[in-house]
């Protein structure tokens, strides 16, 4: 097509070297979802206000809707699909299940990725710190109560 301007995007995604065609117009979110088939990151707003598309870019929490795909050439990306290990779920994921920290689940990938980043940086957050860190992730189902409990429980478990 005349408008398409494809390039080969090479990046390490969830620990695996991936090379696939993307469009120069694609955001990282679009490239992950519609080109690479990695559909865990969700589009909730496409302008950085909901956090459903949160991923780790070279270890740092970002909104994948606010990153151009072309920017991540050679980078390392972790999505929700890369949080569990072959041995089992990450304690964060387990705590989200146990604490019923999700209802519809659409915000869950973003919350879990953001929590992963939080606990890397601050393994023992207070409730206030957890709420502040996660303020960029909207949830409309839970009122956040059970999410915050799950995050604090995961921090406890990781610490012990």
């Amino acid at each position: 097509m005349t408008t398409a301007n494809h390039f080969v995007l090479s990046a390490v995604i969830n620990g695996e070297q991936r090379d696939f065609l993307a469009d120069e117009r694609d955001s990282l979110l679009e490239a992950l979802r519609e080109r690479a088939g990695i559909r865990g990151p969700k589009e909730g707003c496409n302008n950085g206000n909901c956090g459903a598309c949160s991923v780790l870019l070279d270890g740092r929490l970002v909104n994948s809707c606010l990153v151009m795909a072309a920017e991540v050439q050679g980078a390392e990306i972790t999505t929700i699909e890369g949080i569990a290990s072959p041995e089992g779920l990450d304690p964060i994921q387990q705590c989200f299940l146990e604490e019923a920290a999700l209802q519809c689940g659409i915000c869950t990938p973003g919350f879990i990725v953001a929590t992963k980043a939080l606990l890397e940086e601050n393994p023992t957050p207070t409730e206030e710190e957890a709420r502040f860190w996660l303020a960029g992730n909207l949830c409309r189902c839970t009122g956040y109560d059970k999410i915050i409990r799950a995050v604090l429980k995961a921090a406890d478990q990781k610490g012990s």
Partner: peptide
Amino acid sequence: DGTDKVTGRA
């Protein structure tokens, strides 16, 4: 349906 939703598979 929990595991699928916390692993991005749902």
